[in-house]
Design a protein around this nucleic acid. Structure first.
Length: 475
RNA sequence: GGCGCUAUCGUCUAGGGGACUAGGACGGGGCCCUCUCAAGGCCCAAACACGGGUUCGAAUCCCGUUAGCGCUACCA
């Protein structure tokens, strides 16, 4: 029997990188083992779930190239089954009705906290006699259903952590069915995973404390628990769980920044998993071939954007120019430089031609500068970037900026004078020389227009530059 | 607080009793290439959290300490 795995996001937000990686591991495992990958949307939190979020998640998976074999199923559709399971447990004495109100519970919890002790539900409703229960029911009091946690040692062999065990006395008699008849997460998951015959549950580390509860539920429902594999959390640079305040955490953010799906996939796969050895750049097929649950790290990993960008560069340089046309087109359209469906080929040809002319001119002019006296560092590059508008309007400012960057006064004057002449002759603006000059000064080499295009895809800032350039060119 | 998980360069990691002078990659520093702003090559700095065991021998096994994270809801 081949494995069946699932990815079960709740549509309460965008698809964040942690979820994406969990999905990826499931997907990798399914492909590796020739298993089935099920997608299930856990929308039981009606307050926060939206269709919009569902769409974003589906799109994100699609972009990453993570396809599913079954689904998407919507957990909401299985509410009847959840309720039936809860009622069955109730009938079998494995669960009981609890009439405590949320307010009472909150008060007791607060009280326990004040006393410095930890709150645990005291099972008072379990002690209610059948008559008491009937009386309350007749009164129309609302109730939840709590699982009666048996007193035993719960243990499982986690595929990534190894043996884990916990004494069930640490567990509360947790609620499995809300007073409105809807299931609580732990019941819903178990109920669905049983129904969908899930054999391996690969999910985030934050679920290890839920696992004992779920194992108990499996057994109470008369089923053997699946294999559990808890993958480590993804942290921000500060070592805290990755969240919005760390900047871009949605996979959509990275798509918009020009990250390639393949690069993202490769990067995510390596975040918390390693095939052993020194392997880093691995195409999809390699990833699948090498993947194993044992290779998953048990400690959390920090999301390092710099490394993602490096990896993107690796994929970028390996991608033929033709295949880059589409991403470039999308990016340009996104920035409003072109229309959505517009064919950008002619534009690019025009840019190439123009760029070639300008670069040649700039090169001629700049040969008068002694390159050994010009050293560009990151700061210098920033300065030249800022020179854009100055170049157009204020020669003095441009001169000073050049000097700051290390071009001596004579050369700067000379350069600017010559540029002005050339620009006039050719009907160009000084600003057109900005990028070529930068290239000339930095490396003193001419950039191939096509490569310029390549460079541009991966970088938001460069894209903006090209967009501005195109707008200028059109005007 | 309780319970659980975790602990190798700043980051991702290799390594799983002797092969360790602890390897690779990102990032950082330096140099080179100067048809590349996507890249490439070379060099440098940079880690086994701490304390006890076990062992002839420990980054590797055990215990403890510390720290971080997670859970502790009628959220998922």
């Amino acid at each position: 029997m081949t494995p069946r795995v699932r990815f079960a996001p709740s549509p309460t937000g965008y698809l964040h990188v942690g979820g994406a990686r969990t999905a990826l591991f499931n997907w990798l495992f399914a492909h590796k083992t020739d298993g089935t990958f099920v997608l299930r949307i856990e929308d039981t939190d009606r307050e926060r779930s939206t269709e919009e979020h569902t769409k974003v998640i589906l799109d994100g998976l699609d972009w990453l190239g993570i396809g599913w074999d079954e689904g998407p199923y919507f957990q909401g559709a299985y509410a009847d089954q959840h309720r039936a399971d809860a009622e069955r447990l109730l009938a079998e004495g494995k669960a009981y009705r609890c009439f405590c109100t949320r307010e009472e519970l909150d008060a007791r919890r607060a009280e326990a906290e004040r006393a410095g002790s930890s709150f645990r539900y005291d099972r008072r409703c379990r002690r209610l006699s059948p008559d008491d229960v009937k009386a309350r029911l007749d009164q129309g009091l609302s109730f939840t259903i709590r699982f009666f946690v048996p007193d035993e040692q719960v243990a499982w062999n986690d595929a990534v952590h190894g043996p884990i065990q916990i004494n069930s006395q640490e567990l509360d008699d947790f609620v499995i069915l809300r007073s409105d008849g809807s299931a609580i997460y732990n019941l819903a998951v178990v109920s669905d995973d049983i129904a969908m015959r899930i054999s391996h549950v690969i999910r985030g580390d934050d679920h290890v404390s839920n696992t004992p509860k779920q194992i108990l539920l499996y057994r109470a429902l008369g089923h053997e628990p699946p294999v559990f594999a808890h993958v480590p959390m993804i942290l921000g640079p500060d070592g805290k769980k990755l969240s919005k305040r760390h900047g871009a955490t949605a996979v959509g953010d990275y798509r918009d920044q020009g990250i390639f799906p393949a690069a993202m996939r490769n990067f995510l796969a390596l975040l918390g998993w390693s095939p052993g050895g020194d392997r880093e750049i691995m195409p999809e097929a390699e990833l699948i071939r090498l993947f194993s649950l044992e290779g998953i790290q048990s400690k959390p990993a920090v999301f390092d954007v710099a490394k993602l960008e490096w990896m993107n560069g690796q994929y970028l340089s390996a991608t033929p120019a033709d295949e880059l046309l589409e991403p470039v087109r999308r990016q340009l359209a996104r920035l409003g430089a072109t229309d959505a469906g517009q064919d950008i080929r002619p534009i690019i040809d025009a840019v190439k031609a123009r760029s070639r002319t300008i670069t040649q001119l700039a090169e001629q002019v700049a040969t008068r500068i002694d390159p050994s006296r010009v050293r560009f560092d990151a700061k210098g590059e920033q300065l030249v970037r800022k020179m854009g508008p100055q170049f157009r309007e204020n020669l003095d400012l441009a001169r000073r900026t050049l000097e700051e960057v290390g071009v001596d006064q004579w050369s700067a004057d000379h350069l600017l004078e010559r540029l002005k002449d050339v620009a006039e002759q050719q009907g160009l603006k000084l600003g057109d020389f900005l990028q070529p000059i930068r290239v000339v000064l930095t490396g003193s080499t001419v950039s191939e227009p096509v490569n310029e295009l390549l460079a541009v895809v991966g970088r938001e800032r460069s894209i903006r530059r090209l967009a501005a350039y195109l707008r200028d060119a059109a005007a």
